[in-house]
Design a protein around this nucleic acid. Structure first.
Length: 152
DNA sequence: CTAGTCAACCTGTGCT
DNA sequence: AGCACAGGTTGACTAG
């Protein structure tokens, strides 16, 4: 019970020393979760209770995930911006071509300008552009250009 | 275990 | 300098 806890153990905040933080960070860098043996070992090494080590890792995972989400959000915003810009340019180009009375290729035979793929290296969303190459070529095999995500 | 939250503690800033 | 306040950080907790 929280109230019982409050009366018997007023929440005094422990601050980890720089060395304790360093060791925990290093351990987290190697592995984001702990087995019971590692937990005991770290607790003993750092003169902490196993529960404190466990809670530290829980918090660290949560904050790491939050940071990652923020980074991805930033990346997607930038991506959206560049796609909007690309869309604007293409629309302008279509208008210009219409003005010249040039018929665009049959839309049903066209590949999409860009598709979404997952970067196999970092498992993040990446943009895949399909480029059919120079207009003079007879090759029908499109050249695939993959742009891995920014953090990859 | 994660997600959400609380609360102690820290740090930067503006005012006197 | 030193005080108050706001906002950020982080250890600890609960609910699901």
């Amino acid at each position: 019970m929280e109230e019982e806890y409050e009366t018997q153990n007023p929440r005094k905040k422990l601050r980890l020393t720089k060395e304790q933080s360093r060791v925990l960070e290093e351990s987290f860098r190697q592995n984001h979760s702990l087995n019971p043996k590692q937990k005991e070992g770290l607790a003993e090494q750092l003169k902490l209770k196993p529960r404190q080590v466990e809670v530290w890792f829980q918090n660290r995972r949560a904050r790491s995930k939050l940071k990652q989400t923020e980074l991805e959000c930033e990346y997607l915003k930038k991506w959206f911006g560049s796609l909007s810009e690309q869309n604007r340019r293409l629309k302008k180009e279509v208008e210009e071509l219409r003005g010249m009375n040039v018929r665009p290729p049959n839309i049903s035979q066209q590949q999409p300008a860009a598709t979404l793929t997952m970067c196999p290296r970092c498992e993040r969303v990446a943009t895949t552009f399909l480029d059919k190459g120079p207009a003079t070529t007879t090759s029908t095999t499109p050249t695939k250009i993959i742009q891995p995500s920014a953090a990859c």
